[in-house]
Amino acid sequence: MTNHYDIVDVHVHLGASAALSVAGGVDDLLRKLDVNGIGCAVLSPIPGQEDPDGIESTRAVNDAIAAARDAHPDRFPRILAAVEPRHGAPALPEVDRTVGDLGFSGLSFHNDFQGFPADHPTMFTIIERLAAHPSAIAQLHSAIHSWLEAPFQVGKLAAAFPELRFVNAHALMDPTQTSYTLWQAPQLPNMYFDTCVSQKYGFPIERVVAELGDDRFMFGSDIPYMRDRCLDLDLILHADVPDESKRRILGGNARRLFDIPE
């Protein structure tokens, strides 16, 4: 697939999900990036990986992410780490190891597959540790009908740490969530949103650009969760919004937030 846009994908996962029986190795991810004409991506661990050794399992997952970046710095210029809230306080050093020592840009959470709610006290402890690292980013998946990762729970974290930048992933999944996102965004200037797994009806891209502007939404593919084509990309490419808005959503905003040079 070819187009004339500089596409930066903020939502690509590596690894095998025990929760959803989906897996993607590095070669598979690169192939899917190519199929969709995606230049580079922010890479994070696939949620719900097996962790029979607890923190040691998580360290191995994060090491694999760092290795992928080191092997393909042009395709995975920025990476996010996993830290498991169920590992409790002993998990905190992994924040410093990944974001501090290994150069991760921040952390990625998918609380529906991690057992504790996004606004659980342990999450606040982890995010507080993350906030000690300058320019760090916290990506949290949200789902409007979840009781572990409802958008308001993610919002509580963003409100508590106004200096930290958050990416609310899956922010446009259905009309209710899209409406919530439109309501929540003006209250939380430190929250960005990705277009991953968006509703494919009801003109979500047109709505957010019209009501909120184009500078806080970023394209996310959710690779490897599709065979080849990413229809979330089509949703943006074919949206009835100005071309400059498409450029920002498809890549410009991500380059700015994650400090990815052209």
């Binding site: 962790d51 050794d53 607890g54 923190i55 399992s57 169920r86 590992h87 002993p90 057992g115």
Partner: peptide, 11 residues
């Protein structure tokens, strides 16, 4: 069920 699992199976 909400016990913490820093050691995985050992926890």
């Amino acid at each position: 069920p909400s016990y913490e699992t820093p050691l995985g199976v050992r926890s």
